[in-house]
């Protein structure tokens, strides 16, 4: 029987869909068919990439975007977040595909959250290697961090800062990166 090839991005989507399917019944049980709160975030992101293990002279500074969909309050502040980001520099592009648990705590009109996200990262070098024009690698990715959302009004909040310590394992090494993001959050469902 032929085995159909599954592209990495499809695998990421499948993992996310599976997690959503597993979580949704829990949410339904909790709220009895009420639509759970959904936060959708999009904004600017900076990545300090640990490129020395790749033979670079120094760390790289990458700029890009970060988007996230979160179900922030499935059970007493515990929820789940799916996070995608892409960062670019002249020499390198770095992509992160992450999902994992998140805990949110509301204090003095602020929403403070922390999360542990797991998934894959793809790094693509923008110069020739020995066998590829632009060598790239897909590897394990872990992001530990959190942030602060400030409600602006209605469904809108400003994600003042989200900081993550991002550990990737591309090209046979381990990179210890720092990601900082900011942007807008739109809340759907009850709020």
């Amino acid at each position: 029987m032929a085995i159909r090839r599954v592209f990495p991005i499809q695998r990421q989507a499948a993992v996310f869909a599976f997690a959503a399917l597993m979580i949704c019944p829990l949410a339904s049980a909790q709220s009895f068919f009420k639509v759970p709160t959904i936060d959708v975030f999009a904004g600017y992101s900076y990545l300090r990439f640990d490129s020395k293990p790749l033979g670079f002279a120094d760390q790289l500074n990458l700029n890009g975007w970060n988007a996230e969909i979160a179900l922030p309050n499935l059970y007493q502040g515990f929820g789940v977040a799916a996070d995608v980001s892409a960062h670019y520099a002249h020499e390198l592009a770095a992509y992160n595909f992450l999902i994992g648990p998140q805990y949110t705590y509301e204090v003095k009109n602020l929403r403070v959250y922390g999360h542990a996200l797991f998934g894959k990262s793809r790094d693509r070098l923008s110069f020739p290697g020995s066998t590829e024009l632009e060598p790239s690698n897909l590897a394990r990715d872990v992001a530990l961090g959190g942030g602060v959302d400030i409600p602006i009004g209605g469904r809108l909040s400003w994600r003042a800062v989200q900081g993550d310590y991002v550990i990737t394992s591309n090209f046979g090494g381990t990179q210890h990166n720092v990601r900082v993001s900011t942007g807008v959050v739109i809340r759907f469902g009850k709020h």
Binding site: L54, G55, L125, G129, S130, P135, F171, G172
Partner: peptide, 10 residues
Amino acid sequence: ATNVVTSPFL
């Protein structure tokens, strides 16, 4: 010494 990840250069 750190190997430059894209080498060897052909």
